[in-house]
Design a protein around this nucleic acid. Structure first.
Lengths: 213, 213
DNA sequence: GAGCAGGTAGTCAAGTTTGATTAGTTGACG
DNA sequence: CGTCAACTAATCAAACTTGACTACCTGCTC
């Protein structure tokens, strides 16, 4: 799974109704162009594709207000909401290799309820542990580990990565159980999109740091 | 950069001359189908593409020995070797987000000289530190970090990941400087491909662990 | 001796991603 | 008043990836 569908669905959903450029702006606001494949082409493609699949409803808008090319506004459908929640849950629980899907999922996690997020993160821990076991047990050749030579460093790296991720996940669980943040059904949600007409303080300025991706 | 070009170039190079199925088998032997996008389609595509670009030389082989579809054997060109080494160096030095490129690079690192590998890994450390600084400094909003809400967890995750990677990299540098493994120009190289006719002890058996990718 | 599991070698269509490019509008400056 | 830079909005071709599929042969079993 790439992060793009999750990001686009999440953006459209928070707006209620949004056209491609708005989505694109939100993703830039979130810094997604730095840590995911959120290029214009991918975003517009994802919108069209998901409209074709019935996850979004496309409204053709007359090219009225500012001129320029005709715009299409999208609205999330019931099927789209289901898909969004499914992607989000899977992203939180999966032992993902890429940081982009997990980043997106953390950004959207407050769309779920507190208890569910905790249980998804626990599932993540379980899968990390399972994988760690599989790597250490399964990839050791018959003649003992020393037969592996430098190849053993690959497994070492994986185990290291799994341990690091697990530690971070445990920390996050603790903070969430400790009452941090505001989740679904707990009142005033966190506002994560740009209001129309507000400038983006995190825009892709020249001063921005080395390519984060 | 995806890992596939590096993997395919490395495989062809170790064989001297190889056809698609042989490359495919090597990658499976290395477990690459578990942690990279090394599907048949991608492999054959990469071979053709790189032949078109002059990185590989394609020899058409009569469909002689066993029947079946006509095979093409590939040989790495001078340009291909240059590209391979460039990809390898970049993969070792880059603060990569994906584990697949780095896994491949670790597998091939002994094709370089010991001193160079160490210096590339130091460069990697430098870039990790730079990135860490950029994340902590740049992504803090005007009103202080508490304004970030749960979004701050994303940066927290990145910092965690960077620290973990740096720690592992330092460990690897230490082991290499301590004399571990056999690098280019140090005699008998490590044999990393299957000889023709030898069965693969790590084949995709049913007993293999949960999807590692 | 029919047929079926499995190995060998590769192709293909559909979907996705990338990077460049188009095309119009607005603001700013000399 | 022209024109140049930047913004808004989107498209396109080319490349890449995916998962399923073709086709052929060998060995084994019922």
């Amino acid at each position: 799974m790439s992060a793009i569908r999750l990001l686009v669905l999440g953006a459209v959903r928070q707006h209620g109704r949004a056209h491609g450029y708005q989505v694109r702006n939100d993703l830039e606001y979130w810094g997604a162009h730095e840590w995911s494949n959120a290029k214009p082409g991918s975003i517009y493609h994802a919108l069209k594709q998901m409209a074709k699949q019935g996850l979004l409803h496309a409204h053709e808008i007359a090219p009225s207000t500012v001129g320029g090319p005709p715009r299409t506004e999208y609205e999330i459908t019931e099927a789209g909401t289901q898909e969004y929640l499914a992607l989000l849950r899977e992203a939180l629980a999966a032992r993902e290799r890429t940081i982009d899907v997990l980043s997106a999922a953390i950004g959207f996690m407050v769309d779920l309820e507190r208890a569910e997020v905790v249980s998804l993160l626990r599932e993540r821990l379980r899968r990390l542990a399972e994988w760690r076991g599989a790597v250490t047990e399964h990839y050791v050749p018959v003649g003992g580990p020393e037969k592996l030579g430098h190849i053993g460093e690959i497994m070492n790296m994986w185990v290291h990565a799994a341990d690091g991720e697990a530690a971070w996940t445990r920390g996050l669980i603790e903070r969430i159980e400790g009452g941090a943040y505001t989740f679904a059904g707990e009142g005033e949600p966190f506002v994560g999109v740009l209001a129309e007409g507000v400038e983006n303080p995190y825009a892709t300025g020249d001063s921005h740091p080395g390519d984060i991706r």
